[in-house]
Design a binder for these strands. Structure first.
Lengths: 119, 119
DNA sequence: CTGGATCCTATGCGATACTG
DNA sequence: CAGTATCGCATAGGATCCAG
């Protein structure tokens, strides 16, 4: 188990939104405006930056239609799809275990004057 | 593909160090000082905070030996181990594809006056 | 519709120093 | 050895406004 590889992956897509955008693209969102609306908590500025980074690493490919009302479509490349499947494991894990996680957190929170928690 | 589950996982262990610490624990590091030395870039302050969060969600279990020179040992719980396997997929992905990623980044960087890159 | 520029804030995290 | 407190900073990312 080489932790360096974990570090590398995190450096690539360990920010707040990259994995989510990859998931949304996999779900069929293609247009910039689609992503903008299906992930409301993500600001347009950050969406643009995130897509650019994903393009740079070859996860996402962009097609621009230079029409009068500009339109762009982003899609996962083969490389992006390969990463998607690893991300899906994380999502599946959460789906399977989030209830248990919440139970653990409650237990911990009710147990003592611990101090460090988070949301 | 429910992106909410991605979000949840990231909220749990999407910070800079959690997954790495889980990986290190899986590698047999147990003592606080082991972790401190095998992940030199991680400050002791943050190590403490990270371990506490991992304990709160039930990923890590702690045993303290109240000896004259205090000693603590942390280990992955069953829950933590279940998450580890999802993390291993990420690491495996990186191991398989990091070369290709670098090639893509180089190509991108040499191709244009793009502006947003990172490390 | 998409994108860039500016500004501003939150906060994650390191450095350091001190305690039992 | 492990933990806590204080400080300081870098940076991610939101809000807003302007532009093609």
């Amino acid at each position: 188990m080489d932790t360096d590889f974990i570090r590398e992956t995190l450096d690539l897509v360990g920010d707040k939104w990259s994995m989510l955008v990859i998931g949304a693209l996999a779900n069929g969102d293609a247009r910039y405006s689609d992503l903008d609306t299906t992930i409301p908590a993500l600001s347009r500025r950050t969406l643009t930056l995130t897509l650019k980074r994903l393009q740079r690493s070859g996860f996402v490919e962009r097609t621009s239609y230079p029409e009068v009302a500009p339109r762009v479509e982003d899609s996962l490349t083969a490389l992006g799809t390969s990463l998607l499947s690893a991300i899906q494991h994380l999502a599946a894990w959460s789906s399977d275990h989030h209830t248990e996680v919440r139970r653990q957190q409650d237990r911990y929170d009710r147990s003592a004057p611990h101090s460090t928690r988070r949301a």
